[in-house]
Design a protein around this nucleic acid. Structure first.
Lengths: 248, 248
DNA sequence: TCCTAACTCCGTATGCCTTACGGAAATTGG
DNA sequence: CCAATTTCCGTAAGGCATACGGAGTTAGGA
């Protein structure tokens, strides 16, 4: 019964290549799986994954809660469909330029996607679903560095490295903007509340480096840190390191 | 009333330097805040953050649910206390060796900590609480690269880079072991269920690179990917890139 | 000495969430 | 035209955080 669920979800993921094999007996469904998935994506875009619920998806479509379960097996499978769906919403551009430009393209594509759909970073599935758009994506990423001189193993590791770092950087960036906009508190207000206690509690001079580096960062950026500059900085270092690997 | 909450939580975070200023009127509390925090950490270690609930913390202490709220303001504040607590559970060793060894030490300390307490990666707080152990940690990380020749801004960015990558690598590693142990399915069984459909659905030859690289990785490692080798590989590239920055 | 403010512990209730189950209505193959 | 099948949905079970108020306990001050 577990494996039936896997079957069903895989069929839904690959529904475009498989066609829609629905038995013809009963009433037709009022919506398509696509419409359900898109409604779900809209909810997640607006409210994030923790606040994403089956009821909200149903409400958005004008269905009652339990009807959603005739379209998809459950919440986590629906999230799997959403992930593969957003991975297909932009064309994968052909790779151009040298290795550096190509990997920058790969990273920036992920960076943009994470910012378009921040809930992607909140998805925690032990085993990823293998869908068409995710498969295309992985192939495309490997194509970016094919022929550059890496072993097959290194190709895997290089993409993992760039992808992992990009996800971490995007996480920081999104956390920063979420904080800025949604929490009613500005950075300044937050410090005004924290400062009195912290001054009382932090031994003066106990954190010389934090103080020096913190004020340097605070002056250079406007905020406490600039995530998009951290991303560029980190990516540059990583690409330097990867190029160095090819010069061995 | 929001800011009262901040006040209260900061006082709890810095409780060791502040002393315990509890009013003396009513009955004494049966436990200390430390005991509550440690019980909470035990629950999170065993079950992860999604399954972590106030009720389970209460049960573990022999308290009833609502009594926990006399110790800490709420769930998310308790998680803030847990985070700072685990950041203090290991001595921060003095830095030794060259830049490469020092940064490796910083990364490995985080790597170990994430594996000791995987739920740290599931904490999503827009604004981090500033506690004593987190502050010490940040100062210690900066000390690792103080005097190496970076500007203050670069120091911030270098630590952010190493920390972000380490978190991403640990996330992959933990996801892999969670999958292996807890989901009843082995990698093999999982493929046995997925393969029939995927073969039917993936156009043959559509994913040449994925196939080649995937089997290379699968043969070299035993599993689909070896997270700890990906970590070493990535860290080496990053350190190469950082050293190159100093040679400019 | 004793009253009362303040505090702990906890029962109850509200309002979320996922999902199992079963029933009514609709549709179509035979 | 009947019976199988499917959709849509009501209900309920079992989880969650937390607001509120009440009973009992403790100690400061009159």
């Amino acid at each position: 019964m577990e494996s039936q669920n896997v079957d069903r979800t895989l069929s839904l993921l690959w529904r475009r290549t498989l066609g829609t094999p629905q038995g013809s007996r009963g009433p037709k469904q009022r919506f398509s799986v696509d419409e359900v998935v898109h409604a779900a994506i809209a909810v997640a875009d607006e409210e994030g994954l923790p606040a994403f619920s089956m009821r909200k998806v149903a409400d958005r479509l004008g269905l009652k809660l339990m009807s959603i379960y005739t379209y998809v097996p459950g919440r986590s499978e629906l999230i799997g469909l959403m992930v593969d769906e957003v991975m297909g919403e932009r064309e994968l551009p052909p790779h151009q330029g040298d290795l550096r430009e190509r990997l920058t393209g790969v990273a920036r594509q992920m960076w943009d996607e994470f910012h378009r759909h921040p809930w992607l970073l909140q998805v925690e599935e032990s085993r990823p679903w293998i869908g068409p758009n995710g498969s295309d994506r992985w192939e495309w990423q490997l194509a970016a560095i094919e022929g550059a001189g890496f072993t097959d193993l290194e190709m895997d590791q290089v993409i993992t490295l760039v992808g992992g770092f990009t996800a971490a950087a995007a996480r920081a960036s999104i956390a920063a903007s979420r904080t800025a906009e949604q929490s009613g508190m500005s950075d300044l207000e937050w410090w005004e509340i924290n400062a009195p206690i912290l001054e009382r509690v932090m031994p003066p001079g106990a954190y010389p480096l934090s103080g020096r580096v913190g004020t340097a960062a605070g002056q250079e950026y406007n905020a406490v840190g600039d995530p998009s500059r951290s991303f560029s900085f980190g990516l540059d270092r990583i690409l330097d390191g990867i190029e160095a690997l090819l010069d061995r």
